[in-house]
Write a protein that binds this DNA or RNA. Structure first.
Lengths: 232, 232
DNA sequence: CGCCAGTTTGACCAAGATCAACGCAAGTGG
DNA sequence: CCACTTGCGTTGATCTTGGTCAAACTGGCG
């Protein structure tokens, strides 16, 4: 499951945005500290697995640095990527006992690990946290719904355009985006083949919509055009 | 958002499964009664809207009888169906202020309406409820992830086979399933066209996998074969 | 009976998958 | 330092799946 529980990053955001008085009132600073106390840090090498399908799901994670890929291998070898997590995003909050997806580092990454048991104790102490987390999960569910639309109804150029915009929005990039993942990762995320992703990107480049100085960097020459493709 | 908050039906299930002692301990019977107290009943005619996109989202619903369709109209006229809700399923728990999808009755239906404000008061009274609802939302998120896979990577026969099995599992039907929705609804749910849905079903019928006594009834002649299609 | 909405079937078309080269940069070992 | 390999990425040719367009069929209903 991807980004389904970005508790801490949202709390981070609130902390950054709110006044000290607001913070004291909501007690979120203390909450953040409490979360820090129950977490442990772990470095992960490129393509290393953080957890595998069918592993027991006894903890959840938050990306400190790098990019994490949440994926699932089908019986016939097809792969589905449920999502990518960047610094601040959280993942792996399956309460279903067993992992349904696996998580791997796209490049070298650092993650924080939070045991479920400790998290639940924290929830018991602070009932407001549970409702907060529930809202966040609903937000992520909404994002999944958006992706359903993407995968169910959109053409290849629409999917790639959405991917670029999503990437730019999530990384606060305006002029262009770094693309840490491979073409194969993008394809499996968008439900396309590597070749189609390449062709669509090349098409955008020919139109002058984007520039591709190297495979892992895409610059916007005409962002409005990309956004127009997103619509139809 | 579909089935993202089947609080009450799951509580129902637990109530049916658990002993009286377990119920008393968990207090879920009281919870159920409290939910009943804040809800109001509403009858809905075929194709009548329960709420529309952009309506304020100040309540959530539970299907008492009939089938409800959660859908969204795209700018270009295409329609996306996020899900179907049957008796016991809940829907419409958007906390985002404004509806992103609309909900309509597939046939005549009856639903219960629960205001958000009253629900939140109930959550404040019973902190355990919030965690419970959170878990349920996570389960629905997992289901959405499964549908992502379906829409992203699966062929038309695989999608239709999954749909039939999902329908059968959710309605506890073994020999066959009632299909209350139209072919058009199925198509928009699976990201296919009406014609493709028809052709795939006709194909299954020719193979002797299913029988179609009438468009709204599909009987399994060889369930294993359908399940085999689900894999690959 | 004829109309109407929904379903089914067929003929054709196009988007994207598949198969197959080729390019290119980063190792690797002589 | 230079062949050689290896892993990606890109491009082209061809094929398949599912979409599009069109027509026929079905059952209810005025």
């Amino acid at each position: 499951m991807f980004r389904q529980f970005d508790a801490s990053d949202r709390i981070d955001d609130t902390a950054r945005a709110g006044t000290a008085a607001q913070l004291a009132r909501s007690g979120q600073l203390a909450l953040l500290a409490a979360l820090e106390a129950i977490g442990s840090r772990r470095g992960v090498a490129r393509d290393e697995e953080i957890y595998a399908e069918t592993d027991p799901a006894d903890c959840w994670f938050k990306v400190v640095s790098g990019t994490v890929r949440i994926s699932k291998l089908l019986a016939d070898g097809r792969r589905h990527i449920a999502g990518f997590c960047f610094a601040g995003d959280c993942f792996g909050l399956d309460t279903t006992g067993e992992r349904v997806f696996s998580a791997e580092a796209v490049g070298d990454a650092v993650v924080m690990r939070y045991p479920h048991t400790a998290t639940e104790r924290l929830i018991d102490e602070r009932p407001a946290l549970a409702r907060h987390l529930c809202e966040i999960t609903l937000r992520d569910l909404a994002q999944a719904q958006g992706r359903l639309l993407l995968l169910g109804r959109m053409t290849a150029p629409e999917r790639v355009a959405h991917f670029l915009i999503e990437l730019a929005d999530r990384r606060d990039a305006v002029r262009g985006v770094d693309v840490p993942m491979s073409r194969s990762d993008i394809a499996d995320y968008l439900g396309l083949t590597i070749e189609t992703v390449c062709r669509v990107l090349s098409g955008f480049r020919r139109d002058g919509t984007i520039a591709i100085p190297n495979p892992h960097r895409i610059e916007f020459r005409n962002r409005a055009a990309i956004e127009a493709v997103c619509e139809g």
